[in-house]
Simulated scan of single mutants.
Amino acid sequence: MTVEQAMAAYMQEMCTSRSPKTLEWHHTSLRALRRYLWRQYHLTDVRHLSRDCLQTWVADLHLVPSVRTGATRTVSTVSAYARSARAFCN
């Protein structure tokens, strides 16, 4: 299964129990993760997703400007992105 397919399945599963705003937040966070995994590792297969990849992504989040706003992310935004990734991986 690809990372994109796994994320789509996760989001579909959440549609029944989460608010639209929560879904939007998870979508934004996971889209950023998917872009990072492709740019840094050319990772597409969810089986190759590792703890090291995720830890590096979280560490780099405050350094890389947001695609949408161009601003660097705050500590609270980085924490929220990390929570989304953790929920997806669980």
Rank of each mutant, 00 (worst) to 15 (best):
W57G: 00
L43Q: 02
A85R: 06
P65A: 00
W25V: 14
Y36R: 06
S79D: 06
S66Q: 07
V46G: 06
L33V: 01
L30V: 03
C89N: 07
L43A: 02
L37H: 04
Q12D: 07
V58A: 06
E13Q: 07
A6N: 03
S29W: 14
S84Q: 03
S84D: 04
L43K: 01
L33A: 00
L61A: 01
T28E: 08
L23H: 04
A82W: 06
K21L: 14
V67W: 08
T22M: 09
H62M: 13
P20Q: 12
L23V: 11
H48A: 01
A71Q: 12
Q12M: 12
D52M: 12
A87Q: 14
C89P: 01
R35V: 15
R51G: 06
A8W: 09
R73M: 11
V46L: 13
Q12I: 10
Q40V: 15
C15R: 15
T77Q: 03
Q5M: 02
Q55S: 08
L37Q: 03
A85F: 13
V75G: 02
E24C: 10
F88K: 02
S79Q: 11
W57D: 00
V46R: 07
D52Y: 15
L49T: 09
Y81D: 03
T28A: 10
E4C: 04
R73W: 04
E13W: 15
A82E: 04
D60N: 10
M11W: 13
T28D: 07
T28K: 04
T16P: 05
F88L: 15
C15H: 10
W57H: 01
K21Y: 13
D45M: 05
Y10V: 00
H26K: 10
E13C: 04
R83G: 06
S76R: 14
S29R: 02
G70V: 06
V67H: 08
M7P: 02
V78Q: 05
S29E: 09
M7H: 02
E4W: 01
Q5K: 05
V64F: 07
S29F: 14
T74H: 01
A82C: 06
V67F: 09
V58E: 05
